[in-house]
Write a protein that binds this DNA or RNA. Structure first.
Lengths: 196, 196
DNA sequence: TGCATAAGTGAATGAATATTCATTTATATT
DNA sequence: AATATAAATGAATATTCATTCACTTATGCA
């Protein structure tokens, strides 16, 4: 039996993400991807059922890696400030290591395709995060809030900063770059907001 | 001289937004749009130079309407809490009135296409918002912060809530709906964070 | 060594794509 | 009413698209 070429598999994923980030989902095609990855179009259909499946699998894989990184070193009993700081640090680390991956997720996050990915995240990581938040509330380190309110305060500002950086552009500044100080400052504001 | 059919023009815009929101940018085509709007494909090229121009013009128009709504009743000397609350209220009003428009913008916000739209926003509304923030800082009602940090705290949580609502889905809840209380609560957290 | 089997291919197919063009239609002005 | 002119059209074009299929290639195992 012939063996699967793992390098080829990785190259396909890499090029697909690169293409989608740089040209958008509608500038992305199976034939262009095949050419970019030095592979026959038919090969793509060995790895993926169809175009939609390719995108979903890609999103699932990247999301899982991002969530795993974000929860590295987390345990549900951590203090709220420490736990949130750790998650921010982990996410920033991931962003600087794999900026295209983050942009890729941001780009497909609001598409119908992403629904199943979200379910997957909830299933795999909802437990740890749910417990962390629950414990923090019980210890009085975090206001009791609807989860959505919590999530919107806890992470949306970070992602907005990342977006500004990724597009090198903000409402006030046409060549914006994120700094560690900025992230730290924003995190402090978030913690201030969420503490009782 | 034959006169331009304004209803037709509006219908085209409406259908285009509807299609892009429901099927994504890559499920959107000129021919499908023409059919949906009961128009010849060639007619679209009277209104728009090409596909890209159509999308950019659409985004610019919607963004301007959103920003106009968001600044309704604003004057730069307003107290910080009042001004931010007014902008949140205005944005929510717009969202409930034109949910598709907001989803449309969220969907193309992270694409290369959107760059010129962002420039346009900065040019048209940067002044009012800049002055509002500046005054609030001078009066000691707002921490002096890099504009990007301010913006990330001031609006990203609201948009995250809106996204949860629009997709009827959140990390914790598979059938999420926003409530006025939630928005109010989140706004209070934001103001708490941003006050000195 | 050679066989079984999955990996990988290149060319082909039919459908869908963006855009154009010669033509027709409606109306504001004369 | 006649005319000028921009709006609007339907059919056509060349291109690109996702997907398939008959075929070749590489390799684990017998």
């Amino acid at each position: 039996m012939r063996t699967r070429d793992v390098n080829k598999e990785n190259l396909i994923q890499e090029k697909a993400i690169e293409m989608i980030v740089k040209q958008g989902l509608d500038g992305f095609s199976m034939q262009k991807l095949a050419k970019a990855a030095n592979v026959s179009p038919a090969t793509l259909y060995i790895y993926y059922k169809d175009r939609d499946d390719l995108i979903t699998q890609l999103a699932t894989s990247v999301s899982n890696r991002l969530m795993e990184t974000s929860l590295k070193g987390m345990h549900p009993k951590m203090s709220f400030a420490d736990g949130l700081e750790l998650q921010w640090k982990n996410r920033m680390e991931f962003f600087f290591k794999y900026p295209l991956d983050v942009e890729f997720i941001e780009q497909i996050r609001y598409m119908p395709t992403y629904d199943s990915v979200r379910d997957n995240i909830r299933k795999n990581f909802g437990d740890v995060l749910g417990k962390f938040v629950h414990n923090a509330i019980n210890r009085g380190e975090l206001q009791p809030l609807p989860f959505e309110v919590y999530w919107s305060m806890a992470f949306a500002p970070l992602y907005q900063l990342i977006k500004f950086h990724a597009q090198g552009n903000s409402p006030a500044n046409a060549s914006f770059r994120i700094t560690d100080d900025m992230v730290k400052q924003t995190l402090e504001l978030v913690i201030k907001a969420l503490k009782p």
